[in-house]
């Protein structure tokens, strides 16, 4: 969604245009849920958080002052709610401890963070350019959710080897996507 469009949509939302609100909702909902999932790791709570953010957006539309982009504003709201949710111990997972102990490592600068739909395809394309073994290790871990141990057993190599391959893949992805990604 372009900046011009966002601005006119926001203007319309401010005067109570539900059609404009629906357009923004449909454009961002899935992406924001995917973003919330990176904190919450659970779909339903993530959806509730994002829906809540949209209800608040509507309720406060008249007094709303968005200085950043709309995308960044929505992501920031979702992120804050996710962290609140973890802080109040509503959600416990193996990441939540880390998020609470090292908030600096997990609170994203939402202006530059890229959405699922903006990045997903590009990751797939760059992965194709990696040697099969490295692509495979990364895909089994990230896409299929297998642990290093499980992958090592399956491929009959050491866990250390898998660790190295996954690192190489991530390093390669970042090196090839960094110019495409926001600074």
């Amino acid at each position: 969604m372009s900046a011009i469009n966002e601005k006119s949509l926001l203007e319309r939302i401010k005067v109570g245009d539900k059609a404009a609100f629906s357009v923004v909702f449909v454009a961002y909902y899935s992406n924001l849920v995917m973003f919330a999932i990176t904190f919450i790791r659970e779909k339903q709570t993530s959806e509730e958080i994002v829906q809540d953010v949209f209800v608040k957006l509507w309720d406060n539309r008249e007094i709303l002052e968005i200085k950043s982009s709309l995308k960044s504003f929505l992501m920031k709201s979702v992120q804050n709610k996710c962290i609140d949710c973890i802080r109040h111990q509503k959600i416990r997972n193996r990441y939540s401890e880390n998020i609470l102990n090292n908030p600096k490592l997990f609170e994203n600068e939402t202006e530059s963070y890229m959405l699922y739909s903006e990045l997903e395809r590009h990751i797939d394309i760059v992965l194709q350019r990696l040697p099969d073994k490295i692509n495979q290790a990364y895909s089994l871990n990230r896409f299929d959710g297998m642990t290093y141990q499980e992958i090592a057993d399956k491929l009959k190599v050491s866990v250390r080897t898998i660790e190295v391959r996954v690192s190489k893949a991530l390093n390669f992805l970042r090196a090839n996507l960094k110019d495409y990604m926001n600074p």
Partner: peptide, 22 residues
């Protein structure tokens, strides 16, 4: 770090956006 984290998180396909009922 931010870019790697971003790529890492978008690579997670445990949850599929197609399954989200917008």
């Amino acid at each position: 770090y931010v870019q790697m984290k971003n790529i890492w998180e978008i690579s997670d396909r445990q949850f599929k956006p197609e399954e989200i009922d917008v």
